[in-house]
Simulated scan of single mutants.
Amino acid sequence: MKIHPSELYFYHSSHQPIDKQTKAYAKSLANFVNEIDVVREKMTATQWDQILNMLGLRPKDLLNRAHPDYQAMIAGKEWDEESWLNILVKFPHLIKSPIAIYRNKAILCKTPTDILKLD
Rank of each mutant, 00 (worst) to 15 (best):
F32G: 04
F10W: 03
I115G: 13
I3L: 15
E35D: 11
N31T: 15
D80A: 02
N86V: 03
Q21P: 01
A72K: 14
K96C: 10
V89N: 07
L63P: 03
R103N: 15
I74C: 01
L116H: 07
L52D: 06
D61V: 07
V89T: 08
K110E: 10
D69Y: 04
E78G: 06
P17G: 02
E78F: 03
T111Y: 08
D19P: 00
M54Y: 05
D19F: 01
F91L: 10
D114W: 07
Q21L: 08
I36W: 01
T113Q: 11
R103T: 08
D119S: 13
R65Q: 14
W48M: 08
I3E: 15
A75C: 02
L29C: 13
Q47D: 13
L88K: 00
I36E: 03
P112N: 08
N104T: 09
M54K: 15
V89P: 06
L118T: 11
M73I: 13
D80M: 03
D37Y: 01
Y9I: 14
R103I: 12
Y102T: 13
K2A: 05
A66E: 15
Y102F: 09
A100R: 08
F91V: 07
F10C: 12
V89A: 05
H12K: 11
N34K: 05
P59H: 08
I51S: 08
N34D: 15
A106Q: 09
W84V: 01
G56D: 06
P17W: 10
S14D: 09
G76S: 01
H12T: 05
N34M: 12
D114F: 11
A100I: 05
R103K: 15
W48L: 07
I51P: 04
L94R: 01
R58H: 05
F10P: 00
K110T: 02
E41V: 10
Q71T: 08
H12P: 00
K27G: 12
H93F: 07
K77T: 05
